[in-house]
Amino acid sequence: MRAYFHDDLPGDERLPHDTGRSVSTELLKSLGVLHWSVPVDDKGEWEEEIDTIAKDRDYKNRDIIEMSRELLGDSYEEKLQKFLFEHMHEDEEIRYCLGGSGFFDVRDHSTESWIRIHVVKGDLMVLPAGIYHRFTLDTNDKMRTMRLFKDVPKWIAHNRSAETDANPHRVEYLKHFPSSRTTEAV
């Protein structure tokens, strides 16, 4: 996983949009974003480590999803645009990348800047409930991920709006992570 500030320039969001300003693990943690590197191997040894993390964090359910141009065909662009709209969830978003790669952008609420996180095979990432974020594949146009859930699998996006700003999960997020900025770059 590599994190950096997004350049906010128009253009294909599947491109890096890299400012060259890296973001530290500490800054990500101050936003509530967690990360583990769990290499995917052919022997399946990664499953034991994922099971341990799931048990420690009380994740009870999981599924596997795949997104690719080839798999989605004509609906590919529409799906990609849907995920690019800034939104939040009322539950943690947990993704373990089994193959491919993509970008999760999280909003630094202290500055309104986007932080781009490039997720590749072996990255496990947790976004807290209430954080504004968005997702896109990179130019490889495919990603296979395991989603983990604390309860019944669900995925409800609440697009950013005044109403969503007042959502109790968003309000709680801001209380728990009031100021994300002490240092900008690594």
Rank of each mutant, 00 (worst) to 15 (best):
C97M: 07
T111I: 09
I50M: 15
T145C: 15
H6Y: 12
K121T: 11
E26F: 05
V186A: 11
E47S: 09
G73W: 05
P16Y: 04
E13P: 11
I53H: 04
I156Q: 12
Y173G: 09
K142C: 10
C97F: 08
S30D: 12
E66N: 10
L148T: 04
T182S: 13
S75K: 13
K60F: 06
G44R: 09
E112A: 12
C97S: 01
L174F: 09
M67S: 07
S24V: 03
E184D: 13
E163R: 09
E66L: 07
S30N: 14
F5V: 04
N61M: 14
A162M: 01
L127E: 06
V23D: 02
D105K: 07
E48G: 15
G32A: 10
T25Q: 14
K60Y: 01
D63N: 14
R14D: 02
H109M: 05
D63Y: 02
A54W: 00
Y96L: 07
V106I: 13
F135M: 08
V152K: 13
R2N: 12
V152D: 10
E86K: 04
L84T: 06
V23L: 01
M88E: 05
G122D: 02
A129W: 01
E45I: 04
T19M: 03
S30L: 09
M1L: 13
D141G: 00
R116D: 02
L27H: 13
T164N: 11
N159Q: 02
S22Q: 14
H87C: 08
R14G: 03
I94H: 00
E77P: 01
K82L: 13
L80Q: 14
F5K: 01
G100D: 05
S110Y: 04
P10W: 03
H169R: 12
G99W: 01
T52M: 11
M88L: 15
I131L: 11
F149A: 08
I53D: 07
V40R: 06
R147P: 04
G44A: 06
D58W: 02
L80E: 12
S161T: 12
N140L: 06
G100C: 08
K175V: 06
K154S: 15
T52K: 15
H17V: 03
L80F: 00
V126P: 05
L28F: 02
G102A: 06
R57K: 15
A166N: 13
T182M: 06
F103Q: 03
G73M: 02
H89D: 09
E78D: 11
V120L: 11
